[in-house]
């Protein structure tokens, strides 16, 4: 889920860059020296996960997992996603410098917003599955919405394109919700510390 270079207008690009810079600043402050390596490793794991194609009907979708990243890393997901996007740009030329900020806002901003309501509910074993599903679902839905908004603010003529973008992501939302739910369930059983459920090894978010 990226926008390529050369599509959006100057003000949209600038707005995205400013928001992404602020978010990255906050995120970097939250990642202290002790958590730098775990953040880097999780970021690498998410990069690998984003290359996985999951079958849906006759086709397949590739995962975004921005909701899961925000659940695990909090604000730290902004620099982590920025790094992943830089790597994708250098490796595959998906996106580039000017659109980087907007793409960070689309993915990380949507992840933070989509999962913020559900992060505290993961501790409760009963509502965990629903909360994780909703976080995954909403994060992709918001990302598609942000992308549509970026397109329409650039040029009114992108309206139909933006609608198609949103509708095309409907199946992705459901798949992301399901995968996020199963990953969170697995982590809660195997290594609850990653979710911050047993705060002995990682510090709780202030």
């Amino acid at each position: 889920m990226h926008l390529a270079e050369g599509i959006l207008s100057g003000p949209v690009l600038l707005g995205g860059a400013v928001l992404a810079a602020v978010g990255t600043g906050i995120g970097l402050r939250k990642i202290d020296q002790e958590r730098l390596m775990t953040t880097a490793l999780l970021s690498a794991a998410f990069f690998v996960a984003s290359l996985v194609h999951v079958p849906v009907g006759p086709g397949s979708v590739h995962l975004l997992l921005n909701g899961l990243m925000a659940l695990l890393l909090g604000w730290g997901c902004v620099p982590a996603i920025l790094v992943a996007l830089v790597l994708q740009a250098v490796f595959f030329q998906f996106g580039g410098f000017t659109v980087l900020g907007v793409n960070v806002v689309i993915i990380a901003g949507a992840g933070l917003l989509g999962s913020c309501m559900f992060r505290s509910r993961l501790a409760d074993a009963k509502g965990r599955a629903v909360a994780a599903f909703m976080a995954g679902f909403l994060s992709v839905a918001l990302a598609a919405l942000f992308m549509a908004v970026a397109l329409v603010t650039t040029n009114q003529n992108f309206l139909v394109t933006a609608r198609v973008v949103f509708v095309a992501h409907l199946p992705v939302m459901v798949v992301e919700g399901a995968i996020t739910m199963f990953v969170v369930g697995f982590l809660a059983k195997v290594q609850p510390e990653i979710l911050g459920l047993d705060g002995s090894l990682i510090k709780k978010e202030e």
Binding site: A45, V54, L63
Partner: peptide, 14 residues
């Protein structure tokens, strides 16, 4: 897939 990715995350975290 959830389990595979979850295990990858656990390994990366450790």
């Amino acid at each position: 897939y959830g389990n595979l990715l979850g295990m990858t995350l656990v390994k990366s975290w450790q």
